[in-house]
Amino acid sequence: MATTCSSASDHSMNLKQALQDILPADELSLLVRSYDMIGDIAVIIIPPPLLHHERLIGDTILSMNKRIRVVARRAGHHGGEYRTLPLTVIAGEQRLTTMHREFGVSLELDLSEIYFSPRSGNERKRIVDQVIRPEQVLVMFSGAAPYPLQLARHSPAATVVGVEKNIAAHRYGLINVRKNKAQAVVSLICGDVIHVIPELDHSFDRVIMPLPGTARQFLDLAIEYLRPSGRLHLYEFQPRGQFAESEAFIRKAARLKGRSILDSVVTVCGHNSPSSYRICVDATIS
């Protein structure tokens, strides 16, 4: 069974409407009508044929929304080990640092060094809402700590351990833990999960793996340190019709550890491309 988690990425202002009397119809048809907001930074996709209008587009966004101080266009795709997004500032202040608010949590970010998706905010809240008792939670690939901090603020989790390899993301995570006064619940460790988790020498009630495309490489490790009847959240990219393959992959990994899936559900969390979805498999492992 698959469910869908809504995504908050559009910000009401229709860029096409704002530019309909300025751009010719053929160029207007290419324009993406919405953008993502991360703190006071607007992140927009500008198709190559419109790049000569990037300053006009950036200034228009600034005039449409007074909360925005920086407009940056995507200059490529998420890539590299840390899935950072190449960005070019096209209007406003020349910076990629910002303070983002998500369900009452403050996140200081540097978009030039850190992967962060505001579109995953509702998905993070969906996971947090499943924690209804004082659990021990492990967040692999914790980034600047959005998952740990949402868990600390909105759930009864007893302890949340976040492990992140990106030194810059870990540094911002520590800043955010202090900023949100979550030190009593959240512990962040900088390092590779392969080396860090065995050194922790304890297991967890819940393991969150929010790194689609790579997370399954660490599934054996996650299952090994997940307590009996613990809950696993594995994020994947899959085309429609192939969601069951992710569940089957977890089932096989559990079986190799002498365990089994007691129940599972697939949630569609967004798109990776027009034909590929970002999904989360929530599975209880015996």
Rank of each mutant, 00 (worst) to 15 (best):
D40S: 15
D40F: 12
I41M: 07
I41D: 03
I41G: 04
I41E: 05
I41Q: 07
I41V: 15
A42H: 05
A42C: 12
A42M: 13
A42G: 08
A42V: 08
V43W: 06
V43T: 05
I44V: 13
I44Q: 05
I44A: 06
I44R: 07
I45L: 11
I45V: 06
P47R: 11
P47I: 00
P47C: 01
P48I: 04
P49L: 13
P49H: 10
P49G: 10
P49D: 03
L50R: 05
L50A: 13
L50Y: 08
L51E: 12
L51W: 12
L51F: 10
L51S: 08
L51Y: 09
H52W: 03
H52E: 10
H53C: 12
H53S: 06
H53Y: 15
E54F: 03
E54I: 01
E54Y: 01
R55G: 10
L56K: 03
I57S: 01
I57F: 04
I57W: 03
I57P: 01
I57Q: 00
G58Q: 01
G58T: 00
G58W: 02
G58A: 04
D59Y: 03
D59H: 07
D59I: 05
T60V: 06
T60Q: 02
T60G: 06
T60A: 04
T60H: 06
T60D: 02
I61E: 02
I61M: 06
L62M: 07
L62I: 03
L62Q: 03
L62D: 02
L62Y: 05
S63M: 14
S63K: 13
M64C: 15
M64V: 09
M64A: 14
N65L: 11
N65A: 15
N65R: 12
N65T: 06
N65Y: 10
N65K: 11
K66Q: 14
K66G: 14
K66A: 15
K66F: 11
R67L: 15
R67D: 14
R67K: 15
R67E: 13
R67Y: 11
I68D: 01
I68W: 07
I68H: 08
I68R: 02
R69K: 14
R69Y: 08
R69E: 10
R69I: 09
V70H: 06
V70I: 14
V70W: 05
V71G: 01
V71P: 00
V71M: 03
A72E: 05
A72P: 00
A72S: 08
R73F: 13
R73T: 03
R74N: 09
R74E: 02
A75C: 08
A75Q: 14
A75N: 10
G76P: 00
G76N: 08
H77D: 11
H77G: 09
H77Y: 12
H78P: 00
H78L: 14
H78D: 00
H78S: 07
G79L: 10
G80I: 05
G80N: 04
G80E: 06
G80T: 01
G80P: 00
G80D: 04
